[in-house]
Amino acid sequence: MEKKRGVTIAVVAALVIAVISLGVAFAAFSTTLNINGTATVQATKWDIYFSNSAYSSQSSSKPSSSTPIASITPSNGAGFTTTASGTGNITSATTIEWSASFKTAGDRVTYAFYVVNDGDFNATLDSTGTSGLTQVGVTNFTCTAEGGQTGAEESVCAHIHYGIYTDSAGTTPLQTGTSLNAHSSNQYYLVAWLDNSYGGNDGQSLAPVDVTTATITTTLAYTQSSSAVSNN
């Protein structure tokens, strides 16, 4: 009888243990999903600069040191023999410094240069940050008369003009929004002149002393454009 009771207890215990084990096996269900990936950033470049040469895929035209502007053309728009002269340098890849001297009404100096996009991203001349594309004396810059003479500088300053143009004749001003694609260049013309009305008909308003402008500053701000990146 005792033996029979012992067997019964053992069987019940075994059943209980089996039920508990079954419960434990259900809670262990799990799965791990694997997400394996790689990301690559390709080598790219953003590089826009001034140059005397157009873009070339064979060699860089980026000036490594201060370089004289190669094309400086004096002329006279009033039909007179020009008495203009000018100097200019690409002092760093992103800076041009120029100086012009006028004597005769109509005197004019034209500097030709390139803006090169040697990077991998198309660019646009952005209205934000671009300034001074065309400048008229007095309105946009001041002048100083030699010896501090007052009066002369204002009257002369008003006859001095300057601008950046897409043509050598200076008829088409450079506009913001102009594209400059990757691996290409645009040629522009910096034109500074003394207008034809300087001095009047009687020459009474001619400056008795040298009149010099303050530094005329123009900024070309390029930003990445929405067009596709070059795959060159």
Partner: peptide, 18 residues
């Protein structure tokens, strides 16, 4: 900007469900 191409090592992410 990178002057040479840069690539990640394999990124081994996991999401587990229970």
């Amino acid at each position: 900007l990178p002057t040479e191409t840069v690539k990640t090592n394999q990124i081994s992410a996991t999401v587990s469900f229970g």
